[in-house]
Design a protein around this nucleic acid. Structure first.
Lengths: 106, 106
DNA sequence: TTGGTAGGTAGGAGATTTCCTACCTATAGT
DNA sequence: ACTATAGGTAGGAAATCTCCTACCTACCAA
């Protein structure tokens, strides 16, 4: 069970958020992930390690390959953390909506 | 208009998340916030600066004091980012994910 | 067994973060 | 005007992050 510290820290990197987004499509090999980033493979490996330790991805070995899969459960901690604030931006949003009806793309 | 990078980065620190939590109660002076942390005031000032630049707090001057208020709107970006993942942990919650697990080895 | 490929680990350079002390500015009260 | 208080800024030390190259292991194929 990952501590939420590790989860928030893992999400702080745009690269790591992009990895998670790629995994929304389904499990991927490291190489397949690496193609999307302008960085050497070992660097990506380290990002994957951070994600693994936060519990946000899991690894399955298959022959020479390792498939990484999304493990979104820790994100629930983020959603839960967000809950008490939700009320506030909703208030702000509805106030704004009267004035800027089309601006907030929702 | 804060970029979501700054928002996620701001949230990566437990201290800064705790500041936001304290501000759920309403605006507070710096000293009042500082009481909750085991750190010198200038260090907290720097955390407040990160939060300000992420648009997550605002400052209002009143005499010698500065009141910090929660500005939760940027958190909506986080909630929005979370949306596509929500479906997945919901599935996991209902146990559906366990059935699909055998299938992700494509 | 030899060679090629997937991907991790080691170690280090440079940037960034996080804390500190020292100092500065602004306001309030006397 | 003088002093005290609130809180920000400057600059630096230590820790951490993020990238790199070099290397290692594991597996597959000939």
């Amino acid at each position: 069970m990952p501590h939420s510290d590790e989860v928030f820290t893992a999400l702080a990197s745009p690269t790591r958020r992009a990895v998670l987004a790629l995994l929304l499509d389904g499990p991927k090999r490291v190489q397949e992930l690496a193609e999307h980033f302008d960085m050497r493979r070992p660097s990506l490996s380290e990002h994957l390690k951070v994600l693994r330790e936060a519990g946000l991805v899991s690894e399955r070995r298959s022959g020479r390959f390792r498939f990484y899969s999304l493990e979104p459960e820790p994100l629930r901690e983020v959603a839960d953390w967000l809950t008490p604030y939700e009320r506030f931006w909703r208030e702000k949003l509805t106030g704004l909506r009267d004035l800027l009806d089309e601006e907030d793309g929702l």
